[in-house]
Write a protein that binds this DNA or RNA. Structure first.
Lengths: 250, 250
DNA sequence: GGGTCGATCTCGCTC
DNA sequence: GAGCGAGGTCGACCC
């Protein structure tokens, strides 16, 4: 029996079932009308309403309202979830230390409960990430500029980590910052921070922001500060084209 | 009947129940062994394993493994979720446009299904946010520096959005950037951009980064660029003290 | 443990 | 719709 369901459990039954699930390392899902309180990095309260509660064996706890991608309240893994009755209600409490915080859900009316003894050994395989873009650039520096040589990847500097430290055909140093998505002003800031370091000592250094696109404002900021924008969409396109072929049509 | 449960539904029953739930605007939870594919901003695949699937009426779709706070695959609200059978399996598909993307879960073995006709009118009330820190500073500018006067809050300049524009005891302008958490290099970038642009026209201006803490690297970056760090932990402490009193002990 | 940075970031706001 | 910044960001990786 991998999953076990209870219909409209009373508080005592819910607490007993929850304790058993936590003890056995099972996932717990509860559909209920509840109130939620959070106390930790900030504090907050959510009045009564219908939500889905999920508790995982690693201490993860999620409160999902009927809309929205993000849980309205949550606890990341690493802590623990416990159950008890209080004033006649079942209460689920998730807590952790460092930072010290807690989420408490008071269950006013439980509509359904599912215990799920899940086993999952698979890991998510992803492609199209910035890490892959880095690999592509390392293997094809000419895609950025003819004659460019990568000297160092993820170079540590006084002001942070530089994606690529390179030299152009003339031997001039080039600081390269890579973004997988359309470049923003913050990305310009980041490149500017790295380049300012080298300009203090070597007047000749180039700064290059590499991304599939950039707004006019970002391009101007780069231009005004003697930095360059390089549109690199080949990687993007290649990756997408290859992947879409794999998907069966619906 | 707010919640309705099915134990180990077969593919046809699952699809029928899912379609009914989507049509009626109910939340759907499925415990199942499944495979998942994502195609969109990146692409990825997750091999067979036990997971909890949640579909919301706003088009949100979540795939949760037994561990971890974040769903391994998801679709934010705004799109739609549909169900069908394919090669004898039930398949749930979530998609949206802009960006165009899709998550497809092939259900190999359904252990449990819950339909939940949830109604929730409550909204989350939070305190301890950066907005409250702003209020505190506006009321107690002396906490940053003796004699400081706040001239403008949330000043929209052509240089960007400045948290506070102030003047010190000598009348020198001060650009203040406030962070609720430990300051990062990106926060330095932000302040640096505002101040450097301001300096182009007004030679004398101070830049102040206000946060509960900052790493040595951030402090050095500030120092090297003529900017200041002000540790403001009073608000943090006060707020936490006041809030912890509200919580009943477990 | 802290520091730094990416993320299918999401969310909310403003223009 | 794009642009910009916050987030209880989380998570990964490196020291």
């Amino acid at each position: 029996m991998v999953a076990e369901q209870l219909d409209a459990p009373n508080p005592e039954t819910l607490v007993a079932e929850a304790k058993a699930a936590f003890r056995d390392g099972a996932m717990l899902t509860v559909q209920a009308r509840c109130e939620v309180a959070y106390e930790g990095r900030t504090s907050g309260h959510l009045g009564p309403g219908d939500r889905i509660l999920v508790a995982k064996p690693d201490g993860t706890f999620l409160v999902h309202q009927p809309t929205g991608h993000k849980p309205v309240n949550w606890m990341p893994g690493g802590g623990s979830v416990s159950a008890r009755t209080s004033d006649g209600d079942a209460v689920l409490l998730a807590r952790r230390t460092n930072p010290s915080e807690r989420v408490e859900a008071r269950i006013l009316d439980a509509y359904g409960l599912t215990r799920f003894d899940a086993t999952d050994g698979a890991t998510y395989e992803e492609s199209g990430t910035e890490a892959e873009m880095h690999e592509y650039i390392e293997a094809n520096p000419d895609a950025l500029e003819e004659g460019l040589r990568v000297v160092e990847h993820e170079r540590e500097s006084k002001y942070g980590f530089i994606d690529f430290f390179a030299r152009d055909g003339n031997g001039t140093p080039v600081v390269v910052e890579v973004k997988r998505i359309q470049a923003t002003l913050n990305h310009f800031d980041q490149l500017q921070r790295y380049v300012s370091l080298y300009r203090e000592e070597n007047d000749e250094v180039r700064g290059m922001l590499v991304a599939p696109d950039a707004s006019e404002r970002v391009r101007r900021a780069l231009r005004d500060n003697g930095l360059e924008f390089v549109a690199l969409s080949e990687f993007d396109t290649d990756a997408k084209g290859a992947m879409e072929a794999k998907l069966t049509d619906f």
